[in-house]
Design a protein around this nucleic acid. Structure first.
Lengths: 199, 199
DNA sequence: CCCCGATTATGACAGCGGTCATAGCGGTCG
DNA sequence: CGACCGCTATGACCGCTGTCATAATCGGGG
């Protein structure tokens, strides 16, 4: 949300991620990205000589790092750390945006996957990396909450999957119900995976 | 899969759904749909006077009905009905396609949601309807397996969410691991929701 | 002062997209 | 036969997109 002046290049990557959320890859033009970032059009071919594909890939990578950062921040914000609490925080980031602003742009990584997984292989790999970047801190957080290492990675995958799917449904319905439902139903399962209940 | 001769119109809707899976909404052209369906180009404005939006909406609706039909068929194919068995069958439909053909086109409903939820409201509603069409038979199947009615709808949402998210990840990674993981981790939770274990 | 690299400014191009307009078939029915 | 109707056939238009080519601008060092 801090779109401040971090150099025009980073601003463009950020704007690309933002527009990707709304319109998808094919629906977002490069001129549009430049305009949204307040950057001159001539900077496009200068900063992204690899063309649109490079820009999309960087936006996806940025989103992956952003998601990972958020996970760490959620952990720091939990007074009593628990898997369900972490998941609830992850879900709340999305439902809050919908209830606050009234609209729910999707996940840029999902957009890149849907739009160009079968047409641009580098973008597909960028999306895979982003998902990995995201799941990794989640899995590590779970092991830190006494979830056995053998399951923490799998549960992280489940959490991200359920979240992404719920975002899709909530977006289609313009209703955060799917998000809250998933958080409520999945929470107990996650907490049940801790070996020594610490409460 | 049965692209047979059900009239050119239905063939075009089917082809649209198929192309949507791979290239998304903006990445799929109407001429391309006609060509894929072996239909004359002039039929486009004749059968879809509402333009691309109408075509996409019908493809999405078709996909929703198709998913619902599949759920019923999965139920019929289960010797011992159980929530985890149903979910495993739903997941297997996707992982099997990836392992068999080597590639994994996504879900057309997800594509429509990602690409035009914020730009074409009728498409957004079509996607919401498709999700509802899909979850409804799942929820009903759960109640038929002695899952309390209060939870069956929520669990159906969770199942569809987790599946959609796992499809995304598997598509990005070109690896069905996320799908099998989600099925394995979510199965016990689902079976734990039956009041009287029938086994 | 002048050169130089980084950045920006334009303009053009070729392609494709959806959509409209118009006309042509090929039957069937009155 | 002539009228109507479902369907098809083209062709054109306009807007947009990604990309390239070329030149201008600007801030600092040599």
């Amino acid at each position: 949300m801090a779109d401040s002046d971090r150099g025009p290049r980073e601003r463009m990557v950020f704007s690309a991620a933002q527009l990707l959320r709304r319109d998808g890859v094919a629906g977002t033009g490069m001129r549009q990205v430049a305009a949204h970032a307040g950057a001159p059009r001539g900077s496009l071919q200068h900063y992204f000589p690899g063309g649109k594909e490079q820009m999309v890939n960087e936006a996806v990578a940025w989103a992956g790092r952003y998601a990972a950062r958020r996970v760490d921040r959620f952990l720091a914000g939990l007074e009593v750390p628990s898997p369900s609490g972490l998941f609830a925080a992850m879900v709340a980031q999305w439902s809050d945006e919908l209830t606050a602003t009234g609209s729910l742009p999707g996940c840029p990584v999902a957009a890149a996957t849907v739009d160009s997984a079968d047409t641009a292989d580098s973008t597909r790999q960028a999306a895979a990396n982003a998902f990995a970047c995201w799941r990794e801190p989640v899995a590590r957080a779970l092991t830190g909450m006494d979830v056995p290492e053998s399951r923490s990675a799998a549960l992280a995958t489940l959490m991200v999957s359920a979240l992404e799917g719920a975002v899709l449904i909530a977006r289609a319905e313009r209703d955060p119900a799917a998000l809250t439902t998933v958080a409520r139903e999945l929470g107990p399962l996650l907490d049940g995976a801790v070996t020594r209940p610490e409460n």
